[in-house]
Amino acid sequence: MAEAGTKSGLGFDPMHQFEVSTLVELPMLQLPYFGAVDVSFTNASLWMVLAVSLASLFMMTASSRSALVPGRLQLLGEMSYTFIANMIRQNVGTEGMRYFPFIFSLFMFILFCNLLGMIPYSFTVTSHLIVTFAMAAFVFLMVTFIGFMRHGIGFLKIFVPSGIPLVLLPLLVVIELISYLTRPVSLSVRLFGNMMAGHTMLKVFGGFVVGLSTAGLIPLAIAPFALMVAFTGLELLIAALQAYVFTILTCIYLNDAIHMNH
């Protein structure tokens, strides 16, 4: 697996799993502001397409046969629906249900990307900062847009804290503005950092196991192997947890935009 990457002293490269490689070459796209853009179909695109199709397939088969006593698949589908619906009702309120389709799609996409990344030899789309930042930036722009649509220019009041002496006000408005602008950054870095760190750690421990066993030190390989099994379980938890965190923060930002309580 490590043949293509640069070999480190251990004989394998834990970062090789994050390399983007072109699968289908497409002609460069000419865009007015960005110039020539490479839009080739890469392994990242492939796993995104897989995540979208599997998530859609899952929800469609889960809801195709709506039995009164649900089977396992239908139960899973209904559980994911109630999970997100309750999350929105608790964090945004009933008017947030208008945005349910978007938030549910967002959750399912991140969850499937994270879980598909756990399959050996697969590619974890969410371990790339540009992917998570694109999603976070979209959420940020959408929430800001909703805020201005609902409150007009009065939405700017969220940058003005109440009960502050007039002298300090300009300073605090700048600080609030920066703190608002940090949202997409912290939202994307959190998901990207968790996924990348976890997968690198798994590869490093996997490398230890392989390296020690090929060197004939199989008893020594037991400890990293046990750790790897444990970390794989933990990574599955993190995959689901980070999808949840991304979604619940989207809900919280949406609530700020709709209700303007800081």
């Binding site: 920066i178 940090t182 950054v185 870095v189």
Partner: peptide
Amino acid sequence: AASMVGLAYRLMIEVIAGIAVGGFV
């Protein structure tokens, strides 16, 4: 304990993101 570490990371990322965004702007 793992989820507590997660909470701590969240706070840390927020401080770093603040500095990064401030610096960039």
